[in-house]
Computed example of a mutant assay.
Amino acid sequence: MRVRTLVTAGGLALAGFGVALGTAGTASAAEYCTSGYACLYYNSDYKGAFYRQYFDIPNYAKYYFSASAAGSAGAGTAVKNNTASVDNWDFNFGIREYYNQNYTGAYQSISAGGAANLNSALKNDNASGKFY
């Protein structure tokens, strides 16, 4: 009886250890910019938290940065008026970052597959983004 109890306890311990190992990777998985998205970064030079944009957004107010492989600075912050750089992984369309909502005012174009720090008129002053 004692051997059976030890074997059962050992099996449960190993099973629990396996579950712990199996879930550890998902909690620390790094987020990257991927093909088809324009990634907006909280900091210059594509650093800090990011937002992956896949469609036109007339007002960034309800969209938020999340931690990325490049860091977590700015995670949870609204994208509107807080973007410093853009890395465009959409290889078919460029993206324009606009000063005002609804794609108006000053803008900066980032070509398909291109990347740039936002210029002084738009850095931390962007309100909308549209693919072209």
Rank of each mutant, 00 (worst) to 15 (best):
K47Q: 14
A61Y: 08
G36R: 09
A73P: 04
Y41T: 06
D56Q: 06
A49D: 05
Y42Q: 09
V79P: 04
K62H: 03
Y32H: 15
Y54R: 08
D56M: 07
S68T: 03
S66I: 15
A27I: 13
A29V: 11
A29F: 14
G74I: 04
G22P: 03
A69Y: 13
A70T: 12
T26R: 09
Y60S: 02
A69M: 08
Y64H: 10
T83N: 08
N82M: 03
G76M: 14
A27N: 06
K80L: 02
V86W: 11
G22F: 15
Y63C: 02
N81F: 07
S68Y: 08
S44Q: 14
Y46A: 09
S68F: 07
N43K: 12
T23E: 05
S68P: 02
L21Q: 12
L40Y: 15
A73G: 09
A38D: 02
A73T: 15
A69T: 10
A75L: 10
G22C: 05
S85I: 12
Y63P: 00
C39T: 02
E31D: 04
T34E: 13
A38G: 10
Y54P: 00
G74E: 05
G36H: 10
A30R: 10
N59D: 15
A67V: 09
A67Y: 08
S35D: 15
N81M: 00
I57T: 13
K47V: 02
A61W: 06
K47A: 12
D56K: 05
L40D: 02
E31I: 01
Y32N: 13
N59E: 06
P58S: 11
G22N: 11
Y51H: 09
A30N: 06
N43L: 13
Y63T: 05
Y63R: 10
G74K: 06
S66M: 12
S85M: 13
Y60H: 11
N59Q: 01
G22K: 06
S66K: 15
V86S: 05
A84H: 08
C33R: 09
N81E: 04
Y60L: 14
N82G: 04
F55N: 00
Y46V: 01
Q53P: 00
K62A: 03
C39W: 10
S28K: 11
L40F: 15
A30Y: 05
A49K: 04
Y46S: 05
A30V: 10
Y32G: 03
Y51C: 01
Y46L: 04
N43E: 14
D56I: 05
E31Q: 01
R52E: 04
D45A: 06
T34H: 11
N43R: 10
Q53F: 02
T83D: 05
L21H: 05
